[in-house]
Design a protein around this nucleic acid. Structure first.
Length: 901
DNA sequence: ATCCTCCCCTAC
DNA sequence: TAAGGTAGGGGAGGAT
């Protein structure tokens, strides 16, 4: 039923009929069996609807029955004689219902967003009010949605009366573990959306934040590559399979191997419009159409919020941007700035949405839509743009599959993000003895089959070339930028497309008259450096010629941990602000535990509404035009103590003397990190042999990857970081390998996997003890200290030589590395006897001609110690290397290849 | 010269 | 409505 006519003041009755029509339509949809009942009910009712008795709508029981009939758990609530509330969302939404009981006429607000619930809430306010506000009804035929605008002065802000726990809802109401918040004051200022003053804001916000997910997932895969390289024996049996698949390709090229044997071949691989591709896996009917992933559902106009002044706010952005460029280049006029707010209209226009597009399909890109663009502008460019929801679980799943696919062929991987990586294919291509094109074809095919998503690959002699090649290859293609092509290829590349050249630098260069690489090649190195600084200048000088000296980094070391929220920050008073700082500190603290780091430097980042900026932001709940404030404290010692962090952060904040009402963004960053295990005491290697005997039941703890899982799979509950669930004991190592999917609902068949080493039963027992022991070792410091000291810790200085000298030879060799890692992480000065133990082990490996393992171990040791940058340890490397080379010369007459790190 | 601190910029 | 996070590199300018 469509209602294009404007409603009069008695429109509520008609609206009751309208809702009835919706219910009827809903029933039709159910009987025709389209989609899932849950979704549709949510869409139609939008969480909650209030029905006023007297209209031709179902009674409470009828409604309950109706909803129950269509599946899902729905609850109805008889709230009073006047009306019935129905909800399919238990608990949190239930809180809203008490509103109906605390209606007072003076609470009517000046302008009310009119989505279902609020329509009727406001109706109720209206009904009880004496002021008789003027009502405007609008109906959007495009989305078939219905808005009501209540035009009335607000007399005072809403205060909600707290109800007693037994009051206000029936028995049998489903509650989840947040039920204690059921009767908390809920309805602030008649605002439908939570602000940061709400107790669950942080987790809810992070659950919905695309940038948060991108960032966390990216970090997760960097760690994953670290872990894989640490644990790997660098054997890649799956290569055989790949090779046979390549040979089976019909058009396999007959020239073998890479074009340039002596040069490196770098591959860059990137999923095509990742979020969209993942979203379309189950929506084949949308393929080939312009699709975007965004929170916005479409082009329905929003109700104007009072106080919003988009023109003023956008001008401020633009002016600031202009000032920056002209200051940097000395050019004061004559260039035109384009910003992404240029094409945004007012809120109540259908092109006024400021929801950001996370990813859009190539069909949408063809019309000019870009990632990061606001929905309003995108709709102008592409009126038939379709939107789909985020699927954060799906992204993890696909990304994990991508990484596992590549890593079964090589671990020379630099993880860029969840959908993108560089791979050094030099050795792989040489071993396979296939052409770049055939390799790329087979690989892309495999990824497409496994994930259902297309990807593109670019190849070149360095990371820059590979990356630009990928851009050329997209979508769903591959491109090999061979050396003979480089010069011509580079000439036409847009400067903006160079990695590292963003908005500021490209605008600067443009104002200097350069848009393409070819053009920039005219500039001298000195002149570039003059404009952009030393490093940036020389990097750009190289880049525009297709050169890039940066090697891939396969192993990353985290340098900072931070958490920030620049959305929904609207505080009434200092208490709310302080409470939020506490919560954010807790978030940072939990991440520090997860990454096992402590930090020395604490930075508080604040966004404060700029003086001239409108109080209401153009973007709903956004931060608007702000002045940034960053203040930091450096502590004496590194810490991960939540109390210290909280205290410092609150102290810094107070010092700034900022009106909490003006705050729009808050972040906490910890830098100058130390690995937490560096703070441990006692030498793990020697200790292990002792502890095996005297420690019957070692502490158990989940493997590190579970932290990642917990954190990344975060749904609503904030997990403490070191839980010990009995079930997790049983998780095998191979299961826990996935940083993402290890625990849970995804029981993806584990296709990846090194051939398991044959392990004898008794060794297996010791392995178990060992594993647990080492995990116990890596429990974070602040937990350790609270526990009763473990026996071995007591005589730590006398924890000397291993008495019944067992040697490392009895251990499975991959365990040796675990042991080594624990040793490196012990934070102690290395003991000579431990060094002897290693040397003896390596000598033995050389004599028994286990060179591949010696190679891995020695390089592992060298890399680890190089990373430590600790002089005490450097001599260990020298000693080990020297002894190993001596043995090598003795046995083989040659030295072992040792890498530089 | 080299380091530290406070930014700005870029990338996903 | 909307969910504008997070990590790393590097420049400017002052302290050592």
């Amino acid at each position: 039923m469509r209602r294009d006519e404007k409603f009069s003041d008695n429109g509520f009755e008609a609206w009751g009929g309208y809702m009835q029509a919706k219910i009827t339509k809903l029933e039709e949809q159910f009987s025709s069996g389209i989609g899932k009942a849950d979704n549709r009910l949510t869409n139609i009712f939008n969480g909650i609807s209030i029905y006023v008795n007297g209209f031709t709508i179902p009674s409470a029981d009828e409604l309950k029955e109706l909803m129950a009939k269509h599946g899902g758990v729905y609850h109805t609530y008889q709230r009073s004689d006047d009306f019935v509330i129905a909800s399919n969302l238990p608990d949190t939404k239930v809180k809203n219902m008490s509103l109906a009981r605390v209606v007072k006429p003076e609470w009517i607000t000046a302008s009310i967003t009119a989505n279902r619930l609020l329509d009727y809430k406001d109706y109720l306010l209206y009904r009880n009010s004496k002021t008789q506000p003027k009502l405007n009804f609008t109906h959007t035929s495009r989305t078939d949605s219905f808005n009501v605008h209540v035009n009335c002065e607000r007399k005072e802000s809403v205060k909600v009366k707290e109800t007693s726990p037994s009051d206000g809802y029936q028995k049998g109401v489903a509650r989840d573990n947040h039920s204690n918040t059921l009767n908390e004051p809920e309805f602030q200022k008649n605002q439908p959306t939570k602000t940061a003053a709400d107790p669950n804001f942080i987790s809810e916000f992070y659950n919905n934040s695309r940038l948060h997910h991108i960032s966390q997932l990216g970090a997760c895969f960097k760690q994953y590559v670290n872990d894989l390289r640490d644990e790997s024996n660098f054997e890649f049996p799956a290569r055989n399979d790949l090779k046979s698949r390549i040979l089976a390709i019909d058009s396999v090229t007959n020239h073998s191997s890479a074009a340039c044997n002596h040069l490196k071949t770098i591959m860059h691989i990137d999923m095509d419009c990742f979020f969209v591709s993942v979203g379309l896996r189950n929506k084949p009917e949308l393929r080939g159409k312009p699709v975007a992933v965004t929170h916005s559902k479409g082009g329905q106009p929003r109700t104007k919020r009072p106080g919003v002044d988009r023109a003023t706010e956008f001008n401020l952005y633009k002016q600031k941007q202009f000032n920056k460029i002209s200051k940097a280049t000395g050019i004061a006029e004559g260039f035109e700035l384009k910003t992404r707010v240029d094409n945004i209209t007012d809120e109540d226009d259908k092109f006024g949405s400021m929801s950001e597009i996370a990813s859009c399909s190539y069909e949408a890109r063809a019309k000019g839509v870009k990632n990061g663009m606001f929905m309003g502008e995108a709709l102008k460019l592409c009126p038939d743009l379709l939107t789909i929801q985020y699927d954060f679980e799906g992204y993890k799943e696909v990304a994990y599959t991508l990484y596992n696919t590549i890593s079964q062929y090589t671990l020379d991987i630099e993880a860029v993000s969840c959908d993108e990586m560089y791979v050094d294919c030099t050795e792989l291509l040489k071993t396979l003895n296939v052409s770049v094109h055939d390799f790329a074809f087979a690989l892309r095919e495999e990824i497409k089959n496994k994930t259902g998503c297309p990807c593109s690959t670019g190849f070149g002699g360095n990371r820059l070339q590979a990356r630009l090649a990928t851009k050329q290859a997209k979508p769903d293609g591959q491109f090999f930028l061979t050396p003979d092509l480089v010069d011509e290829f580079m000439f036409n590349i847009n400067l903006r497309d160079l990695p590292g050249v963003g908005r500021q630098i490209s605008q600067k260069l443009e104002s200097l008259g350069h848009v393409t690489c070819g053009s920039l090649q005219i500039l001298s190195l000195a002149s570039l450096q003059n404009h952009l600084g030393n490093k940036t200048g020389s990097q750009l000088y190289d880049q525009c010629r297709g050169c890039d000296a940066h090697p891939l980094t396969f192993h990353t070391v985290r340098k900072s941990v931070s958490a920030e929220v620049n959305y929904g920050i609207r505080f009434e008073n200092n208490e709310q602000c302080e409470e939020f700082l506490k919560q954010l500190s807790a978030e940072v603290h939990s991440r520090m535990l997860q990454f096992k780091v402590m930090g020395k430097c604490i930075t508080l980042k604040l966004l404060v509404r700029a003086k001239d900026a409108p109080v209401e932001t153009a973007k709903f709940m956004g931060h608007g035009f702000c002045d940034p404030i960053n203040k930091s404290t450096t502590l004496q010692n590194a810490t991960n103590d939540i109390n210290i962090i909280t205290k410092e952060v609150i102290a810094i904040c107070k010092k700034q003397n900022i009106d909490p009402k003006e705050l729009r963004g808050i972040g906490i960053q910890i830098t100058k990190l130390d690995s937490i295990s560096n703070k441990q005491v006692s030498g793990p290697i020697s200790k292990f042999f002792k502890s095996k005997a005297i420690r019957p039941e070692p502490q158990q703890n989940k493997p590190e990857s579970f932290d990642n899982v917990q954190n990344v799979l975060r749904t609503d509950q904030r997990t403490n970081t070191i839980p010990s669930t009995p079930k997790k004991n049983k998780v095998t190592q191979s299961e826990s390998k996935s940083p993402i999917l290890g625990t849970s609902k995804y029981n993806l068949p584990k296709k990846r996997g090194r051939p398991s080493k044959s392990v004898k039963p008794e060794v297996s027992t010791s392995k178990n003890v060992m594993t647990k022991f080492l995990q116990g070792e890596s429990v974070s410091h602040d937990i350790c200290v609270k526990k009763e000291p473990v026996k071995e810790n007591v005589p730590k200085e006398t924890c000397t030589k291993i008495e019944p000298k067992p040697g490392l030879l009895n251990l499975p060799w991959e365990k040796v590395r675990e042991l080594l890692r624990a040793w490196f992480d012990s934070g102690q000065t290395p003991k000579p006897w431990d060094v002897d133990l290693i040397v003896e082990y390596l000598r033995e490996m050389v004599t028994s001609k286990n060179i591949d393992k010696v190679y891995i171990l020695v390089n592992f040791i060298k890399r680890k110690i190089t990373e430590m940058k600790n002089d005490n340890w450097n001599h260990v490397v020298n000693c080990v290397v020297e002894e190993v080379q001596n043995a090598m010369l003795a046995v083989y007459g040659k030295k072992l290849l040792i890498n530089d790190f």
